[in-house]
Design a protein around this nucleic acid. Structure first.
Length: 816
DNA sequence: CAAAATGTAA
DNA sequence: TGCGCTACATTTTG
């Protein structure tokens, strides 16, 4: 029941997460104990003192490499005892614990190599900082956190300044058990090659540079990389290899880096050379093929180091920008930035912070640190304006130096440096452009940027958007996102498109410190009414969606929850992916709504009413509201229809209430309800969607019946005849989709087997509702079915599927 | 302003 | 594995 959770949450908090003060005390008490000398090349005190740097990771291709490594683990022969059978394959009784294991927070699974952190350990916080640097969080509920090392996570660790021995030593200190030899080998193997190859941007051209000529030679043997190489057209003896002074060690700063072709003189007057007099070998690469090269380098285990020595780059004009003195950065934001600028240069990479945790400010601070021309890309024109507003709010940037590039506004900044804010679609657009837009694109692609800021970076791997990474020349790339997940495999690509994950915040930590709101999550089960369920079973899968969204029991649950929370004084957002359901609910409840077709002006109006008017406490949003709508008033969220199993959407939506203004009120909780029609596909999707949040430590409660709902007055669709009327309407509405099939029948030119007019009619949106269509629903289906089965219909994949399943009675039943 | 074209995501 | 489908979105043009 909705009123109990706040009490429960507090208990959880007390029980699971020691308050910061408490854990500090514990730390002080236990730290001075001298750690076991056998395992301690460096001491735990050191570890505590430097506060390890965090911030790694990505991958899955990578885990395959890791798995191969792990396959080399010896199979342990050991005596099984009487309870071994209960543990089956997971009987690790053969692993011996160190004597003082009680003080050490980590377990390492000898078989999978996964690392388990005891979240209640006094060392947990330090250990977490470390683990997040060297490995990928798998799951982080309150007490037990699980991490996994991957080659990418280890690259990221090195890129952030950790060295191989340090990683191994710290692991040894923290672990209750000995570290398997093969895991150590893997760490060594993955970290040793990092940094040998560097990526440089000079005069709007990319170069691969290495002080290890043999490594470069090896890379050039790869066909893809060789293809991308540009044989120099410079006056330097036509050689494809340009010799340049090697920066010795990764922290040597080369002043006035103008080393193009005729710079041998520069070598001489450079300050006292360090020990190695190595010359770097440099290969120019084709900008177009830049993406391939980076990918291949990662695959060949020589990921390219990408650092920008912005303080010593005189080739790009400086930008006059600073944070306003009153701007204060939170500790975790500072941590992000220390990852990025750890060695005095700017590293490219990705920062993962939950919505509402101030990603924008991190980006702005980074821009203020680099002080070079900066390009900001976001997903919509609305965010563009928000970014601009935030830049003005937090920094002292001059109006004349900040420009916006959207369909409405095409501004340029004055002088040699400035900020441009735009959207991915504006920059990635390949169609014919208006004159202004073409000019603007030339402006953007024709110059070198010191910094490119990619908001909602999880969209970058999309086919068109990823082009921005290659078409725009930038020395540093920083990606920001709350949810580094996609349901396809493309998230891996960010490793070579942008760089390693530099930092990932733990949502629960931020919540416990009051930076984001505490949220109670619940899944509310709404049984389907018999009539709706009958139709649901009959409907082909693509039409089921609307039926379970419009389930009268769900409508009632929604209405009940809205009333309940409005009475509590909450501001409520209801999300529906399905536009029909959205409108229907909103109109029935007499509540304003926004979806894609809502005019911008009306959107603003609705949003401002929601924020300021005491009478508008609920709004309905379609997936336009998933990202970057800033509503600090909202404290309760109800989801009635969603996009299949999208974990990202679930998390983004939750993000809408994380920045709740009232979050620091005593005992405040935000609420997140997911309404699910039982015994439908929604059950499956819902489980899948929640996974991201569960991995972040959120617990979903299942509510099978809302207490008091049966007694509640004035709920919609109580009576059976009203429900039936609704069902009829829904079926007609559903026919809008079905009508596309009818179009094929109706159109005599459309022979079966020709490329269908489906797509065309859908784009045309010519369908209109009528009574006739409702009756023809099943008829249309019959037609589709027999056509497919008969083999005359165009789509062979569908045909195969049909043919295979045609004898299955259930399948038949679903279609007829 | 509506419509066309094109984008994302599962 | 890749491509087509669908539903939603945004940008540009007439």
């Amino acid at each position: 029941m909705p009123q109990t959770p706040s009490k429960r949450r507090l208990q959880d908090d007390e029980e699971y997460t020691p308050s910061p003060g408490l854990s500090k005390n514990l730390k002080k008490r236990k730290l001075p104990k001298k750690p076991d000398s056998v395992y301690t090349p460096s001491t735990a005190e050191d570890l505590n003192k430097d506060g390890l740097k965090d911030g790694p990771i990505i991958p899955k291709i990578a885990t395959m490499v890791l798995d191969k490594e792990l396959a080399k683990f010896p199979t342990y022969q050991h005596k099984r005892d009487s309870v071994s059978d209960l543990f089956g394959k997971n009987d690790y009784s053969f692993v011996s614990l160190k004597k003082d294991h009680g003080n050490r927070p980590l377990w390492i699974n000898p078989v999978t190599g996964n690392i388990i952190l005891e979240g209640f350990s006094p060392f947990a916080e330090k250990a977490q900082d470390f683990l997040i640097t060297i490995s990928e969080p798998v799951s982080r509920p309150s007490l037990i956190h699980e991490y996994k090392m991957t080659p990418y996570s280890l690259y990221a660790a090195v890129s952030v300044g950790l060295e191989t021995d340090a990683i191994i030593d710290v692991l040894k200190i923290l672990s209750k058990t000995d570290i398997p030899e093969s895991l150590i080998e893997m760490i060594k193997k993955c970290t040793v090659s990092y940094g040998k190859v560097k990526l440089l941007l000079k005069h709007n051209k990319y170069f691969v540079e290495s002080s290890h000529a043999d490594v470069l030679q090896r890379l050039l043997q790869d066909k893809d990389i060789a293809d991308a190489r540009i044989v120099s057209t410079d006056d330097t003896n036509g050689n494809e290899f340009i010799k340049s002074k090697a920066p010795s060690g990764k922290d040597l700063v080369i002043a006035g880096k103008v080393q193009n072709d005729q710079q041998p003189s520069e070598d001489k007057n450079n300050e006292a050379n360090r020990d190695d007099e190595l010359f770097n070998t440099v290969v120019a690469i084709d900008k177009e093929k830049f993406e391939t090269v980076r990918r291949r380098c990662n695959e060949l285990n020589y990921p390219m180091l990408e650092e920008y020595d912005f303080r010593n780059d005189s080739s790009l004009a400086p930008l006059d920008i600073d944070l306003k003195p009153i701007t204060v950065i939170r500790p975790y934001q500072e941590k992000c930035l220390s990852k990025m600028f750890g060695n005095g240069r700017a590293r490219s990479g990705i920062i993962v912070l939950p919505c509402g945790a101030g990603k924008t400010l991190v980006g702005i601070t980074a821009a203020c640190t680099i002080k070079k021309s900066c390009l900001v890309l976001c997903t919509s024109a609305v965010s563009v304006m928000q970014w601009k507003q935030q830049f003005v709010q937090w920094s002292n940037i001059k109006e004349s130096q900040i420009a916006v590039f959207t369909s409405d506004q095409k501004e340029k900044f004055f002088g040699h440096s400035g900020i441009v804010i735009s959207t991915y679609s504006m920059v990635a657009n390949t169609r014919v452009r208006s004159y202004e837009a073409t000019k603007m694109m030339e402006f953007i692609t024709g110059r070198e940027w010191g910094f490119i800021l990619l908001d909602e970076v999880h969209v970058v791997p999309a086919n068109m958007f990823r082009k921005v990474v290659t078409t725009i020349a930038a020395h540093t790339k920083l990606g920001l996102t709350a949810t580094l997940v996609r349901e396809d495999e493309k998230i891996e690509d960010l490793n070579f498109l942008i760089g390693p994950k530099l930092y990932e915040a733990n949502w629960m930590d931020l919540a416990s410190k009051g930076h984001i709101a505490n949220v109670q999550c619940a899944e509310v089960w709404c049984p389907m009414t018999p009539e709706f369920y009958a139709e649901y079973l009959k409907a082909p899968s693509r039409r089921r969606n609307l039926l379970y969204a419009m389930n009268p029991n769900k409508i009632q649950a929604c209405q009940y929850l809205i009333k309940y929370h409005e009475n509590r004084g909450d501001k409520i957002i209801v999300f529906s992916d399905n536009v029909y359901a959205l409108e229907r609910y909103a109109i029935d409840f007499q509540v304003p709504f926004i979806h894609g077709k809502t005019k911008p002006q009306e959107r603003l109006q609705v949003l401002s009413m929601f924020q300021h008017s005491p009478t508008v406490n609920t709004i309905f949003l379609s997936k336009v509201g998933d990202t970057s709508i800033d509503l600090p008033e909202a404290t309760c969220l109800i989801q009635i229809s969603s996009h299949y199993g999208s974990r990202r959407q679930e998390a983004q939506r939750l993000g809408r209430i994380l920045r709740a203004k009232r979050r620091n009120d005593e005992g405040f909780n935000a609420f997140f309800y997911s309404l699910v029609s039982t015994d439908t596909q929604e059950m499956y999707y819902s489980t899948k969607r929640q996974q991201f949040l569960i991995d972040q430590g959120y617990a979903f409660k299942v509510i099978t019946s809302l207490e008091g709902m049966d007694k509640a007055q004035n709920l919609a669709y109580r009576e059976r005849d009203k429900q039936m009327a609704l069902l009829a309407e829904v079926l007609i509405a559903n026919d809008d989709a079905a009508e596309l099939d009818n179009d094929i029948d109706a159109n005599v030119d459309d022979l079966p087997g020709t490329i269908t007019s489906r797509n065309f009619s859908y784009r045309q949106k010519v369908a209109r509702r009528s009574m006739g269509n409702m009756k023809s629903l099943s008829g249309a289906d019959d037609m589709a079915y027999y056509e497919g089965n008969g083999g005359s219909h165009g789509k062979s994949a569908q045909k195969k599927k049909d043919a295979k399943k045609v004898h299955h009675p259930l399948f038949r039943k679903n279609w007829l």
